[in-house]
Write a protein that binds this DNA or RNA. Structure first.
Lengths: 143, 143
DNA sequence: CTGTATCCGAACAGATACTG
DNA sequence: CAGTATCTGTTCGGATACAG
C-alpha cells in the first residue's frame, strides 16, 4: 500500500505546513530575513536596521529562525562579544519569496491605502464596535 | 520642500508597507486568499474548507481583506441569505505570491521540521523559560 | 555587546448566545 | 445562512533591570 504520502495541506488544522506559513508570515521574521539578504549581520546591526523592533522580539525572532534552520548563529569569542547571523541555504531559498512580498507591498501600497479610505468612507453603519473591525493595522503610536 | 516621493521602506517603523506585509503575513488571510483562488466561495464554504477557523476569525479576516481591496463581498437578496466572496484584481495579483508561500511551505516542511528536532535535541542549556522560547510552535515538553 | 528574566497592559482568539 | 455581541482566558510585546 503506497504509503499515503499525502501532500502537506495547510487547510488541515494539524498540518505542519501551517506552522511554516506562520513563521514566514511573521512580521519580524520577514524583515530579519530581508536584512540578512545582503550577507552576515551582527545582532546590533539588525537591531539598528529594523526600526522599531525591541530587543526581546529580535532575539525571539532570531531564535525561531535559527530553530527552523533558516539562519545560523555564530559566536565569536572576543571581547566585547560579537555574534553574527546569516542565512542558511534553506533561508536563502526563501529569499525570493520574501523579496516578492516586500516588492508587492511597496508597489501596491497605494492601492491598498486607497481601498481602505474608500471602505472606511462609505460605511453607512459606522465602524462596528465589536468583531467586525478588521485586524487593527494602524497601530497606536509608540508612546 | 520637494514632496519627494520616497520609495516605501518596510524597515521604517511608520511605513505603510509594513502594514501591508502584516496583512499578507496574517495566518488566516493567506488561507482565505488561497481558498478563493479557484473562484467565488460562499461564507459557509470558506468556513468548511479552512479547518479550525472560528466564525469570528473568518468574518474578521474577510472584513480586513475587503477593506484592503483584496476581496469583494456580494450579498444575494434571497432566503436564506447567501453571500459570495471573490478576489479582486488586486487580490489576484497577490495570488502568485501566496501560492508560492504555500508551495515553499509544503516542499520545505520536512527540512524545517528536521531542523527543529535537531535544534531542540542539542540544547545543552535546556529550553530557557522566558523570552528565548521561539514563538511556540510545539508544545514545550512539560517536565 | 549580546543577551536573559520579569512585570504588566494590550491585543488576540475561542466559545457561546442571539438576530435578520 | 451569515453574521453580530459579549465574555473571558491566552498570548503578544514593550519597558525595564540585570548579567556574562
Amino acid at each position: 500500500m503506497e504509503s499515503k504520502q499525502m501532500r502537506p495541506d495547510p487547510f488541515q488544522r494539524n498540518c505542519g505546513s501551517r506552522q511554516v506559513i506562520d513563521r514566514i508570515g511573521d512580521r519580524w521574521s520577514v524583515l530579519v530575513v530581508l536584512t540578512l539578504a545582503d550577507g552576515d549581520r551582527r545582532y546590533g546591526e539588525l537591531a539598528e536596521h529594523i526600526d522599531g523592533i525591541s530587543q526581546k522580539m529580535l532575539t525571539q525572532t532570531l531564535r525561531g529562525l535559527e530553530r527552523d534552520g533558516l539562519v545560523t548563529r555564530t559566536v565569536h569569542a572576543s571581547v566585547p562579544p560579537r555574534v553574527d547571523y546569516a542565512l542558511t541555504d534553506l533561508g536563502r531559498s526563501l529569499l525570493d519569496l520574501v523579496s516578492g512580498l516586500e516588492s508587492w507591498a511597496t508597489t501596491h501600497l497605494a492601492e491598498v491605502q486607497a481601498a481602505r479610505v474608500r471602505y472606511d468612507a462609505d460605511l453607512p453603519h459606522r465602524a462596528p464596535t465589536g468583531t467586525a473591525r478588521p485586524t487593527r493595522l494602524t497601530r497606536p503610536a509608540r508612546r
